[in-house]
Design a protein around this nucleic acid. Structure first.
Length: 267
DNA sequence: CCCGGAACCTGAAGGC
DNA sequence: TGCCTTCAGGTTCCGG
């Protein structure tokens, strides 16, 4: 599941290859990837120069001129390939650039999207702060969390509160911070918020350094796997022993999502 | 405003 | 063995 570290890894891989060139054309073997706006909406990007490739939360943004942008979201099983042979199946979109590069969007479950934004502001504004930005402080995170009475696990997954965290890294951050996933967001103490702030940044930073986690289908644009999952303590580890205390990792449901945690370290 | 749940989607996994 | 059901989770939408 591509989350912030995976999308950031992809961004770093494709940015130097396509920034400065223009969008020559987009073909859609699966038109539904363009969503309600339809495939025609993407034509507005043709001929526009990609100034830079940005990431906001889990969104990959090919920034064009005048705050326009082509925005890709990989959702559950999406992947972007740049150097690998084109697969026979599951190719949903191919973006071709003036310098000859071809970005191939493959997606088994067809939940991913490609959208053209004539103005990126609405998208950027509705997303919460970037967890790794310096302007996210323990205080500002605490204020956001205090405004909700949902389980802290659900708060971490809410892209309006923090942008980019998904199920794996939410579990890892909560374990590192020693916080039970069902703890009501507004009941967290200042100490817990500070631990969580630190844990989120640590977990995401380490994962980027490992080029993301390839527990499932995630691959780098060159087809390689990331190794961040080797450092996981709880995510997808039901029955394994907690590396800190030896207790068996448990899995409960929080808002219909699997939540892995250590019942001893996170109580 | 706030929260919970359904829907979207396909393949893997589990039950009988 | 094979059919059927459930589950996986990011996001949006709908209803209480």
């Amino acid at each position: 599941m591509p989350e912030l570290p995976e999308v950031e890894t992809i961004r770093r891989a494709i940015e130097p290859r396509i920034a400065g060139s223009s969008i020559a054309g987009i073909s859609l073997p699966d038109p539904s990837i363009a969503g309600a706006a339809g495939p025609e909406a993407l034509r507005a990007s043709y001929g526009s120069t990609v100034r830079v490739v940005l990431r906001r939360g889990k969104h990959l943004i090919l920034l064009l001129e005048r705050n326009r942008g082509l925005v890709l979201h990989l959702r559950m099983t999406g992947a972007l390939l740049l150097d690998t042979p084109e697969p026979k199946d599951r190719v949903r979109a191919i973006i071709e650039f003036s310098n000859g590069e071809r970005l191939v969007f493959v997606d088994t479950r067809r939940l991913g999207t490609v959208r053209m934004y004539e103005d990126l502001k609405p998208l950027l504004q509705r997303l919460g702060p970037e967890p790794l930005d310096t302007d996210l402080t323990p205080e500002s995170l605490g204020e956001s969390l205090a405004r909700h009475r949902i389980p802290v696990k659900a708060a971490l997954l809410d892209q309006h509160i923090l942008a980019g965290i998904g199920n794996m890294y939410a579990d890892e951050a909560l374990h590192r911070a020693g916080i039970h996933p069902l703890t009501p967001s507004h009941e967290l103490t200042h100490t817990q918020v500070a631990s969580l702030w630190k844990a989120v940044r640590h977990v995401l930073g380490e994962a980027i350094a490992c080029q993301g986690a390839s527990i499932n289908t995630y691959r780098l644009p060159n087809g390689e796997r990331g190794s961040a999952h080797d450092a996981f303590n709880v995510a997808h580890s039901k029955g394994a022993q907690c590396l800190r205390c030896g207790t068996s990792i448990e899995r409960i449901m929080v808002r219909k999502r699997g939540a892995y945690f250590c019942p001893t370290c996170q109580s």
